[in-house]
Simulated scan of single mutants.
Amino acid sequence: MCTCGHLTGAAYYYQPSDLLENPWTDGRSVIGVSLHPRYGGYFAFRCVLIFPKVFVSPTFSPPRPLKILESQEAIKTAIEAFNFSWQDARFREYGNPQEKYEELQTRYFSVPPAERWALLKEWFA
């Protein structure tokens, strides 16, 4: 989904391959993080729509995503925050987002998915 977002220009998908050297040589699995120029990490891609009978012009050029992190260190720390500290939501702050989740949304998304129903039950009790 992050690749789709990147290819459409919706958000920049920072990947470990963007770094000149792999800093994670200890065998940990590391994935990239998508950051939006307005929302930072306060968004998610939920689906892709495919239109099999729609064709684009051969001269079509998709929009390029805006790159909001420039330095190798900033990219590395954003990827690390997403992979190893996602529950504290620090990764969402990269790029100085203009719009953010409300406190309840942040709390909900900071809970592991398997525990979210229990949180909802608590809120509605």
Results as ranks from 00 to 15, higher is better:
Gly32Cys: 10
Tyr14Phe: 09
Ser71Ile: 05
Ala81Val: 02
Glu93Val: 01
Gly95Met: 01
Lys67Gly: 00
Leu119Val: 10
Ala11Trp: 01
Pro16Ile: 00
Leu120Arg: 15
Val30Ile: 15
Phe55Ser: 15
Ala89Val: 10
Val30Ser: 04
Glu70Ile: 06
Trp123Phe: 13
Cys47Ile: 08
Ala81Tyr: 03
Lys53Val: 10
Tyr108Gln: 03
Gly40Cys: 01
Tyr13Ser: 01
Phe109Ser: 00
Ser61Asn: 15
Cys47Gly: 15
Ala81Glu: 05
Pro16Gln: 01
Val48Met: 13
Leu120Gln: 13
Ser29Met: 03
Glu115Arg: 13
Ala74Cys: 06
Glu122Ala: 10
Gly5Phe: 11
Gly5Tyr: 02
Cys2Leu: 13
Arg64Ile: 04
Gln87Ser: 14
Tyr14Leu: 07
Leu66Val: 10
Leu119Tyr: 07
Phe55Gly: 09
Pro16Trp: 03
His6Leu: 05
Gln15Lys: 15
Ala10Asn: 08
Lys76Leu: 15
Val48Asn: 08
Gly32Met: 09
Asp18Glu: 07
Ser61Thr: 15
Ala44Val: 08
Glu99Asp: 03
Phe60Arg: 05
Ala74Pro: 01
Pro23Ser: 03
Ser85Phe: 11
Pro58Trp: 12
Tyr101Thr: 02
Ile75Val: 12
Gln98Phe: 02
Ala114Leu: 08
Glu102Thr: 12
Phe82Tyr: 14
Pro58Phe: 07
Ala125Ile: 06
Pro63Glu: 03
Ala125Asp: 15
Trp24Val: 01
Lys67Glu: 11
Tyr14Arg: 04
Pro113Met: 05
Gln72Leu: 00
Phe45Ile: 13
Ala125Thr: 13
Asn96Tyr: 02
Phe124Ile: 11
Tyr12Met: 06
Ser61Gln: 15
Ser57Leu: 10
Ser34Cys: 15
Trp123Pro: 04
Phe124His: 13
Thr8Cys: 14
Ile75Asn: 03
Thr77Val: 13
Ala89Gly: 06
Thr3His: 10
Gly5Ile: 08
Arg90Thr: 13
Thr59Phe: 13
Gln87Glu: 12
Val111Phe: 04
Tyr94Pro: 02
Pro97Cys: 05
Pro97Glu: 00
Leu120Lys: 04
Ala44Lys: 12
Met1Ser: 08
Arg64Glu: 07
Cys47His: 15
Ala78Pro: 03
Pro58Arg: 15
Leu19Trp: 05
Thr59Ser: 15
Pro63Arg: 08
Ala78Lys: 05
Arg28Gln: 09
Glu80Asn: 12
Ser17Gly: 10
Lys53Gly: 11
Glu21Cys: 02
Trp117Ser: 13
Ser110Trp: 00
Thr8Lys: 09
His36Asn: 09
Glu102Val: 12
Gln72Trp: 05
Arg92Ala: 08
Arg38Lys: 09
Ala74Ser: 11
Pro58Gly: 06
Val48Ser: 13
Pro23Thr: 09
Pro62His: 04
Ala118Thr: 10
Asp26Asn: 14
Phe43Trp: 07
Gly40Thr: 06
Ser85Trp: 00
Phe55Thr: 11
Gly9Met: 05
Arg28Phe: 02
Gly41Tyr: 00
Asp26Ser: 06
Glu70Lys: 13
Ile79Arg: 01
Met1Asn: 07
Lys67Asp: 04
Glu80Lys: 10
Trp24Pro: 00
Ala74Arg: 09
Arg46Val: 14
Leu69Gln: 04
Ser34Lys: 04
Arg92His: 01
Thr25Tyr: 06
Arg28Pro: 02
Glu70Asn: 13
Thr106Lys: 12
Glu21Asp: 00
Tyr14Lys: 02
Pro37His: 00
